[in-house]
Structure formats: structure tokens, C-alpha cells
Simulated scan of single mutants.
Amino acid sequence: MTDARDAATPSTAVEGVALADLPKVSLHDHLDGGLRPGTIIELAAAAGVDVPESDPEALGGWFRAQSDSGSLVEYLKTFDLTIAVMQTEEGLRRVAREFVEDLHADGVLYGELRWAPEQHVQKGLSTDAAVEAVQAGIDEAVANVEAQGGWIRAGQLVSAMRHLDNGVEIAELALRHRDVGVHGFDIAGPEDGFPPSRMKDAFDLLLAEGLPITVHAGEAAGLASIRSALIDGHALRLGHGVRIREDIEIVSDDGEAVGVRLGRLAQWVRDRRMPLEVSPSSNLQTGAFAAWGSDFDDHPFDTLYQLGFAVTVNTDNRLMSGTSLTRELGLLSDAFGYDLDDLLTFQLNAAEGAFLPLEDRVELQARIEEGFGLD
């Protein structure tokens, strides 16, 4: 498997425009996957948690190396360390504050921070206190950005761990905080063997109360997982969703592609412009598109884009992939020859799919177009 980080340094500009300066939207970004290595070292020392490296750069390298396994299950094991240092109000608040500040530095105008509060109660915090601590960090970061003349908005996606079966409890937690920072709901963790149908009661409750839902599906499991996310999970977006490619047939004649045939599931997702929260580097690390190759340019992202799917670009876990949205856009541009119009499309897709009221999405899209020089 080729690690995207082993490739040539990705482009930092397209058509002479610095990618770092382009306005972006981050829909799929895990809070416990985006810590600064230096912060982990400091919080670990205070909590008595062992770390494999005491130097921030070396620790960042350790996370990337551990994550390049080609397996989602192995990839997820790196979170044991980050979660261990996020067990106090102070730790959660700091991590959330720095997370949003790092989003702003990456050009993000709107970000959704997904995380599982049930994993952060090992030292006595209640899940409500944990959510409040994260929101305090988000609010502090937004205020800091605005004090420096910048602009960013961010919200929480409360996740239930799909293998712990606490779906209704976590859904009720999300609903309690929906007016004070929680923008939506997600399920995370091992996908294969833990279909969304296990938490159907939670999803039904959220649908009845009108809280938006996204579901990890089509990453470590295939079409059945995606179908369950839509039917049982009432998903408005698909977390990753790259294995929808399994429902697309390339029609060939004497070895030459002459057409494309979409299955009913793929056509449903495409025709309804359901956003796919694609995280290219992460997908390479976890083997999510191994059926089509092992290099970055084998990713089905471009196939889905050319066929009209509402693809969005995300980082998934900045720490584990050693990446940023700027870097992901550079990698995609290098692999598929995208220009500024393409990159604009990806951001507008994300803004349209954001778990925000319509008027806020319209404002966000206007800010994006202005940032791309379309005012």
C-alpha cells in the first residue's frame, strides 16, 4: 500500500491561488483524531499516561505509522491514547479550543466536530459535563478568532459508539444540547458487523425530534451498511460512503470503457445529492477502497464526482493522517487535475450539506464564493 504521505509533496496552489487561503468546510473531522502532539504530551504528563514518544514531531510520526495499517480496526487503536488524555473538563476544553483554532488556520469557515462523549467519562465526568466542556472550548476559540479579525463557526456532532449499544441514551444527550452547540448525531467505531439497524430506536427518536443524522457507512463495510444507514439510520449524509462504488458498473467493449450503469442504491444516493463525507488519505490508510487499488489515484473519488455524486473533502483524523484540508485538496488536485472550479464545487457541496439552518447555509455559501473571487 502506498501512503499518501510518501508521495511527492502535494501542490500548495492551484491556478496560482494558495490552497491554504481558500475558504473551506469541514464536515467529517473527529475531535479525538485532531489533537496537537504537544498537547497530548502535556496532558499525558498531568494525567500520568504513558506516551510512546516524548517529542511532538516524533509522536506525530508514531501516530501516522500506527495508522498506516490498511485496517480500520487497527487504525482505531491509536485513539486509546488520545481518549486517555481527554477525560477532564480542562482537557476537553483545551482540545476543542485548539481544534477550532487549527481549523481556522486551515481556512475553514465552518466545521463540525464529531466525538463520542460516552468515551470520556472514565474519571467521573458525566456525558453532559463533557459536552458542555467541549462547547466551552469551541466558544472560546470562536471568540479568539473573531478578536483577531477572523470568522469561523463550529458545532458538535455527538456520536454513539456502534458497538456499545447506548444509542438511545446518547441520542437523548444530543437532544438535550441541540440548542447550545450540538448540530447533529453520528455513530462511529467498528462498522463491519455493527450495522446501523442496531440503533434503530435511537435514529427513530432523532428523526421524530428533527435532529440531523449522519452515519459512518461504506468505509469498512459495503452496500448493506449504506442501505441500513439510509433505511434504519435516516441518514442525511454518509460518513465516507466510498464503497457506494460497488453499486456502479463500468460498461466495457473490447476492454474499453463505453458507459456506466448505476445500481438502484447508487442512483438513489446520487439523484438525491446526498453528501458523501470523503476523507481520501484516511481511506487509503484504512483500505476503504482496496478493491480498486492501493494508490491515492485509485481512490473512487473522481469517478463519483464525474458521475454527479455530491462529494465533499474531509480529513477524518488530522493527527492520524498527518493532514489538513489544504493538503487533501492538494493531493486530489495532483491526482485528478482539478482546477479552482472543482475545488469550489466540493466546498459548496459541503456547505449545502452542513447541519445548519437554510439561511446560515446560504450565508456560508456566499462567503465561500467570495473567498473564491466570485463576489
Rank of each mutant, 00 (worst) to 15 (best):
residue 8 A to Y: 00
residue 10 P to K: 04
residue 19 L to A: 00
residue 34 G to R: 13
residue 44 A to K: 13
residue 50 D to W: 05
residue 57 E to S: 12
residue 63 F to G: 12
residue 64 R to Y: 10
residue 70 G to W: 07
residue 78 T to L: 07
residue 86 M to Q: 13
residue 86 M to V: 07
residue 89 E to L: 15
residue 92 L to H: 06
residue 94 R to Y: 10
residue 94 R to C: 03
residue 97 R to P: 09
residue 97 R to C: 14
residue 101 E to W: 11
residue 105 A to Y: 11
residue 107 G to C: 06
residue 119 Q to N: 11
residue 127 T to F: 06
residue 130 A to F: 11
residue 138 I to W: 05
residue 143 A to W: 00
residue 149 G to V: 12
residue 151 W to F: 09
residue 155 G to S: 12
residue 156 Q to S: 14
residue 162 R to M: 06
residue 164 L to Q: 15
residue 165 D to E: 15
residue 166 N to E: 14
residue 169 E to W: 04
residue 170 I to M: 12
residue 177 H to P: 07
residue 179 D to H: 13
residue 189 G to F: 04
residue 190 P to Q: 13
residue 199 M to P: 08
residue 202 A to M: 09
residue 212 P to G: 03
residue 219 E to W: 00
residue 220 A to V: 02
residue 221 A to E: 07
residue 222 G to L: 10
residue 222 G to W: 12
residue 225 S to E: 14
residue 233 G to V: 02
residue 238 L to E: 03
residue 239 G to H: 01
residue 244 I to D: 02
residue 246 E to F: 07
residue 247 D to R: 01
residue 256 E to H: 10
residue 257 A to H: 08
residue 259 G to V: 11
residue 267 Q to P: 02
residue 286 T to C: 03
residue 288 A to G: 08
residue 289 F to H: 05
residue 303 T to D: 12
residue 305 Y to I: 06
residue 307 L to I: 12
residue 310 A to E: 08
residue 313 V to L: 08
residue 313 V to Y: 03
residue 317 N to I: 11
residue 320 M to C: 10
residue 321 S to W: 11
residue 327 R to I: 15
residue 330 G to W: 00
residue 348 L to I: 09
residue 348 L to C: 02
residue 350 A to M: 07
residue 354 A to C: 03
residue 357 P to K: 08
residue 372 F to G: 04
